[in-house]
Design a protein around this nucleic acid. Structure first.
Lengths: 158, 158
DNA sequence: CTTGCTAAGTCTGTCAAGTAGACCTAGCCT
DNA sequence: AGGCTAGGTCTACTTGACAGACTTAGCAAG
């Protein structure tokens, strides 16, 4: 690899950093994992993530403020009014991030005994995975087949 | 959605948590981003991520210890011996995580002016994106088409 | 040979954030 | 009235992030 073109561009504009500013904190991903598992209640979240209550409270508020989770009141019969947290569309679109972490974890950080959870296609039941694809329809085998190039919003460094 | 099956299983075994234990810290993703950009030297990393030198030092050591980066000596003519950090195969396989964050950031957290970086297919130049696919060849439109099920390593909660 | 420069760190003091555990509150149930 | 539960908040402690100065090795210029 030659000297990287990236050195000539300003990294401050990178949207990875922007995404991480919203969801990059330690417990946030675990909260999202549980949200994708269908967990919606504070105490279930707390028990399953192990996050301190105060941190969980703060992360949930943040995710609601960012529009990744919605907070809605609901009431079960004979119970008092409660709130539940559900993924919004914006939140659901974070799924590839979670799926990619899961795939990597299964391969490189797995506990013995096989994967504790598997993703399947709702319609046919077959296992689901992430694939790098280009708009010409080629399937890419690895990140080595990807070339990052400066886009419309790129700014040269002074 | 009915009561989640997930409540009956132990979340401690989840490989997402295992992955996050390795790469889940605040600056780690930015370090990886720069690594994928072809940045290999400490000072370039420091300047581009903005991480405090001490934190960067500690994150790089961690990533080397985990086998995600390799530290190799090299020498340019007329220069003294230096070290560079390069992604290992294990590190390269984290690319989908970065790509997923980038895609989400482009859509939901973008600065005006368009994406600062785009991913293209090395062979044909067309834009690259992540696609959820099942082993039957179906392309999934959204996370809603995915059903997580307990896998071989799942443990019921007592 | 002394002084300076650069890359790649380490050291120090300060301050924000995470953490454990107790406490609080509203509504329902007995 | 008293107790239970979900969903928090309060307090005190400990860890980690941070900025800025210092260190070290090797090359180079004076």
């Amino acid at each position: 690899m030659a000297k990287s073109w990236a050195l000539d561009y300003d990294p401050a504009t990178c949207n990875i950093a922007a995404a991480l500013a919203v969801v990059g904190e330690k417990w946030t991903f675990l909260v999202l994992r549980e949200a994708f598992n269908g967990i919606r209640r504070f105490d279930d979240m707390q028990r399953r993530t192990g996050a301190p209550r105060q941190v969980l409270s703060s992360r949930l508020s943040r995710l609601v403020a960012e529009g990744i989770l919605g907070k809605a009141p609901y009431q079960e019969p004979g119970q008092r009014l409660r709130h539940e947290y559900r993924l919004t569309e914006k939140g659901i679109e974070l799924f590839p991030v979670i799926a990619a972490l899961l795939a990597w974890g299964d391969k490189h950080a797995a506990a013995p005994g096989g994967p504790p959870v598997e993703l399947t296609h709702r319609d046919c039941g077959a296992p689901v995975f992430l694939q790098l694809t280009c708009s010409q329809g080629h399937v890419l085998g690895s990140a080595r087949d990807v070339t990052p190039i400066p886009g419309a919003g790129a700014r040269r460094v002074a």
